[in-house]
Design a protein around this nucleic acid. Structure first.
Ligand code: FES
Ligand code: FES
Lengths: 148, 148
DNA sequence: AACATATAGGATGATTTTGTCCTAAATATA
DNA sequence: TATATTTAGGACAAAATCATCCTATATGTT
């Protein structure tokens, strides 16, 4: 459903918000560790998010990534779009050259419903809100270590 | 959402049904042409569908692929599973090692809703039924040629 | 039996995605 | 100004996906 890159992007931006809500910037290394993702690859993805103005970044000592009010209206849909492009949200899901109501593929009208739910999932809660849930411990962005 | 392979698989099996409803088997070459997919790659996917008993195949002159009553209870979900595996339907969509209600990721409860729709899309109509719609011209499995 | 046709399957190659590594640029601090 | 730190970005490598090609196997026809 989501590429590895966008999975990392989603977890990373939520993590950045959890830290920004406590007024601290985070580095690529810390982010990679916090979301169980390879550091260098994560850094690439953070670049994309920064270029797309979904997060901010500052170089040098005490630098890092952060999110603030200027990013508050961005959604996870913007994140997925920045990393994976539009394909999940538009175009024919069976790869026909054109998605249209007039010449639909066999899945067209059902895909519309799936995409509606997908859209809801990626836009109804703000990223900040998702971060608060993580802070409260209601949800996780890191592997659960199974203890027997 | 779907890999190229499963897009081809879905279109191929629907096409096979359209032909089987008219009592004729189809070869890999004809299938590739009918769904705008590369012939050799399509042949590989047809092998997978055949091995999974989602379609039948016969070698030699007058051979080809077909579907009959013995395949009538198979769904597009079986097709996607045979080609892409379970990942679209189970496991954590953000890549956590475990998907659970007790330790959910930020998208967990919303993903459940998306998957519900996805499941509906891939199981509510029989493949035969989808083939009938194609025969009637209500839906398409081939690129639409744009004439200006 | 010989031959032609069509699927099965292995080997290989191209492309995309995923991931690593190194250097450049920016910036805080001493 | 020199140095250390951290993001930016290019080059490269590994793995997965997408795609092609060739040979084996099965089977119908002559
Ligand atoms: S035509 Fe295939 S999804 Fe719209
Ligand atoms: S825990 Fe992520 S989808 Fe269930």
């Amino acid at each position: 459903m989501f590429s590895k890159a966008s999975q990392y992007a989603i977890k990373a931006i939520i993590y950045i918000w959890t830290q920004s809500l406590q007024d601290s910037k985070v580095g690529a290394k810390a982010i990679g560790a916090a979301i169980d993702a390879p550091e260098a690859f994560t850094a690439k993805i953070l670049q994309q998010l920064s270029r797309a103005n979904l997060i901010g970044s500052i170089k040098g000592p005490n630098g890092g990534f952060y999110a603030n009010e200027s990013h508050a209206n961005k959604t996870l849909k913007d994140v997925v779009r920045a990393v994976d492009g539009e394909s999940l949200f538009s175009g024919c899901s069976l790869g026909l050259n054109k998605c249209s109501e007039k010449n639909p593929c066999p899945l067209h009208f059902e895909i519309v419903e799936v995409r509606k739910k997908l859209d809801h999932m990626l836009t109804n809660k703000s990223i900040r809100h998702l971060a608060v849930e993580v802070i409260k411990g209601e949800t996780n962005i890191k592997h659960i270590i199974q203890v027997e």
